[in-house]
Amino acid sequence: MPDLKELYEAVVSGNAKATQAITQQALADGVDPLKLVNEYMVPAMDEVGRRFEANEYFVPELLISARAMKASLEIIRPILTARGDKPVGRVAIGTVKGDLHDIGKNLVASLLEGGGFEVIDLGVNVSPEKFIETVNSRQANIIAMSALLTTTMPSMKTTIDALKQAGVRDKVKVLIGGAPITQKYADEIGADGYSENAVGAVALAKKAVAAA
């Protein structure tokens, strides 16, 4: 039986080979995969988020921790799905139509995944139709949109309007973020929430699914 504290350490230090090896060994030894997620990976990503907020970690450190977490989740997720375990929530995330800047979106996606959400990463330049399709086909209950440019921000409103037109607005909570975004803008376009940083986005998403 591996020392599971090492799983926590490997996520925090961004060692993907170690997370993969420990996960495989732990599962072979009969450890419940949900225990690995809830007792080691989620707290590890919480710690990564804390360090990021405290300016002890920066984007590179966060990305390698996220990669280490994903290496383990890739092994665990199919097992959880097969036995019918449900994620905290299902988030469809992407940068809006016309915007190719995805670093912020990737940070949020990783921390959401670390927070127990299933994340459907739609990538960059995501059309309103693509968001709608994902709500319908994958039953996403949160849409998270990011924009870096003031010129692409309006795509957020376009997407929300399209969700209404498609009759799916009530099925999802819409969260937005990005450098030019403000709470005021979120209110104006009828988004359900705004966070100015990636750590705050996870708390916001948890609140959103709790309220649903």
Binding site: V59, L63, R67
Partner: peptide
Amino acid sequence: GINTLMMDFF
């Protein structure tokens, strides 16, 4: 690629 470069540092 910016995401890849961030990990290249390590």
